[in-house]
């Protein structure tokens, strides 16, 4: 077996043998799908109460992804745990003694964990869409409509990328407590506030989650200064920066 494959296999074993990482991924799926179904059902029932304007810009695809606001937190938790599991426990010393070229360890861990997050993200996104449409009754859309497949695939990508972003940042912060304390409140509230308060809206729109979630919408209600792919690219730039920072810190610091 080649050297790279050995390290990848080892990282895969690490992830699947700790319960918490497995649970966070499972809850990302369940929470996103269940919440999306709930909100879709509620809107279906209350559709007639919506204003005319709201009915015109009604985006059934976007609605079925409403659960990502919470589900992404579980994805972020997964990203944090995959990395912080090494630090809180001193495991990082055993890991680096086994794979002393630090970039190799980082690359293998990120590759395995991101692939897993992407796979779960894709399943989540398709399930959330299909079950959400089921709840929307007459107001549903389908994968054949323009822009819908792009939004569903994009949402799966978003879930994987947000986990990767969390991993990169956790290599910098090196502690579960710090990582959760910084990232969960930020993505749960602060980013939304920044993106919706007029004073900070212009900047807030370019935050990683705000830009990335543009891809989930099929109907452009004029609230975004960029299109879906540009939004995803902006998110990708954030992710690249987080991973680069993590790599820099891992290389420089003592373990």
């Amino acid at each position: 077996m080649s050297h790279a494959r050995r390290v990848l296999l080892s990282e895969w074993t690490k992830i699947r043998t700790v319960r918490a990482t497995v649970w966070t991924l499972a809850s990302a799926l369940v929470v996103t799908v269940a919440l999306g179904m709930l909100i879709s059902a509620l809107l279906n029932n209350g559709f007639d109460d919506l204003s005319r304007e709201e009915r015109l810009t009604f985006d059934p695809t976007f609605i079925s992804f409403a659960g990502t606001s919470l589900g992404q937190l579980a994805m972020i938790a997964f990203g944090i745990l995959v990395v912080s599991n090494e630090y809180g426990t001193g495991m990082i010393r055993a890991s680096l003694a086994a794979v002393p070229v630090r970039g190799e360890l980082l690359a293998a861990k990120l590759a395995v964990a991101t692939a897993l997050a992407l796979a779960v993200g894709m399943v989540t996104s398709f399930a959330a869409f299909l079950l959400g449409q089921l709840m929307l009754g007459d107001h549903r859309t389908d994968l054949g409509q323009p822009g819908v497949l792009r939004a569903v695939l994009g949402t799966g990508l978003y879930m994987g990328l947000i986990a990767l972003f969390a991993m990169g940042l956790t290599w910098v912060l090196r502690s579960a407590l710090l990582s959760f304390g910084v990232q969960i409140p930020f993505f749960f509230m602060i980013s939304n506030i920044l993106a919706n308060v007029p004073a900070t809206e212009k900047v807030g729109d370019y935050l990683p989650d705000q830009a990335g979630s543009r891809v989930m919408a099929v109907i452009d209600d004029g609230g975004w200064p960029y299109g879906p792919w540009v939004g995803l690219l902006i998110m990708l730039a954030w992710v690249a920066a987080a991973v680069a920072a993590g790599w820099f810190v891992l290389r420089r610091r003592d373990a």
């Binding site: 043998t17 700790v18 426990t89 001193g90 495991m91 010393r93 055993a94 003694a97």
Partner: peptide
């Protein structure tokens, strides 16, 4: 090593 280098939740 001096400090335990083990994840407590992994067998």
């Amino acid at each position: 090593l001096e400090a335990r280098a083990v994840h407590p939740g992994r067998t």
